[in-house]
């Protein structure tokens, strides 16, 4: 009856596309929101997005109608649209193009993953999968110029195995006394998004969680995000423990190693030969060392940052396996994750 039978629906999609773009622009504020950190992957979260408005000439301060005598004149609607999405959908918006950098094929670490590919032909199937060209060829080979029942060919799929490489991602979080409430929150939310993203993108990937004060503690995922211990800070034992762990459980012939460290950078001293040596061992074995400094020193570099930076300088020519990022505020979380993980970006 109409020019477009369901143009309302089509335009709704047009509108939602625009809304998506607006959403992507406001992601840095959204992703660190309390309701999102800690949500289950399929849980639906309500997010407020600024309404898309068509601009027009208006006054800076609209003449307040009716002097506001509580008659409900001029109902303010806030100009906000509420949309519901899952964290997975949210992640699609901003992390989908990321890849773990420097993933190498390891001769022994190959695991097979199954994958369906549409590369087979059958004689029976749903009409939507009809392979017209093959059907017409079949008809012609029987000397027909029309399609008979037995000419129909359908596209179908076969299950192939696909070799994938396994990796171990080691997340280390500083749980010492200098990490106050905000620092913990920021480091946890960055770690949470990375974990979410790895679990989604790389299903075969192993995750190892460590908390450290002066001594490292290996914990479960749940404890990693909830448990707090207090004490001083030292990283030497942690570096050694990780190197040990990799040696023992995840041999470099089979695994790509990733090391991600969240700390505020307050360690006693970095001018320690043993510390540099330990870190160098890690760099030699790892595909990536990532360091997130959470609200470190404002004016000068923290000792831990200097340590990492020195290591990064030494290991330049090797596709920069040490990457550093600072998180001062909630808005920085997204950018920091990108800086550390993004495949092509040079280390800063």
């Amino acid at each position: 009856m109409d020019l477009y039978n369901h143009k309302g629906e089509l335009d709704r999609q047009w509108y939602l596309r625009k809304l998506n773009r607006a959403l992507r622009d406001s992601l840095p504020e959204i992703v660190t929101h309390e309701t999102i950190i800690g949500a289950r992957p399929n849980q639906r979260i309500r997010i407020a997005v600024q309404r898309l408005e068509e601009p027009h000439f208006r006054y800076e301060s609209p003449p307040s109608p009716a002097g506001g005598h509580g008659q409900g004149i001029g109902g303010a609607d806030g100009g906000v649209v509420w949309i519901e999405m899952t964290t997975d959908e949210l992640m699609d918006l901003w992390l989908e193009d990321l890849k773990l950098p420097r993933m190498e094929n390891k001769p022994r670490g190959v695991v097979d993953e199954e994958e369906d590919r549409f590369d087979d032909v059958t004689r029976r199937g749903p009409l939507a999968n009809l392979d017209k060209r093959r059907s017409f060829y079949a008809a012609r080979s029987h000397g027909r110029d029309y399609l008979a029942e037995e000419d129909l060919r359908f596209r179908s799929w076969k299950t192939h195995t696909r070799p994938i490489t396994s990796a171990v991602v080691t997340l280390v979080r500083d749980a010492s006394g200098s990490m106050d409430e905000t620092k913990r929150y920021l480091s946890k939310s960055a770690a949470w998004w990375i974990v979410r993203w790895i679990q989604r993108q790389y299903r075969q990937c192993e995750l190892v969680y460590l908390l450290h004060t002066t001594e490292p503690v290996r914990v479960e995922e749940r404890d990693f995000f909830s448990r707090e211990i207090t004490g001083g800070t030292a990283v030497l034992s942690t570096f050694q423990a990780v190197a040990d762990l990799w040696d023992r459980e995840y041999p470099p012939s089979a695994f790509n190693h990733y090391f991600l460290h969240f700390s505020d950078g307050e360690i006693w001293s970095a001018a320690d030969g043993a510390l540099q040596l330990a870190l160098q061992t890690l760099v030699n074995n790892a595909s990536l060392l990532g360091y997130f400094e959470v609200q470190g020193y404002r004016s000068r570099r923290s000792p831990l940052w200097k340590l990492y930076e020195a290591t990064a300088r030494e290991s330049t020519g090797r596709l920069a396996p040490v990457r550093l990022a600072e998180i001062h505020d909630r808005e920085d979380v997204l950018g920091a994750i990108r800086t550390v993980i993004a495949d092509s970006q040079p280390s800063s």
Partner: peptide, 17 residues
Amino acid sequence: YLVPGRYRHWSYGERYW
């Protein structure tokens, strides 16, 4: 759209939604 057959625009999509 207020009138049958009117042109398409995303803001009408919002109202429809």
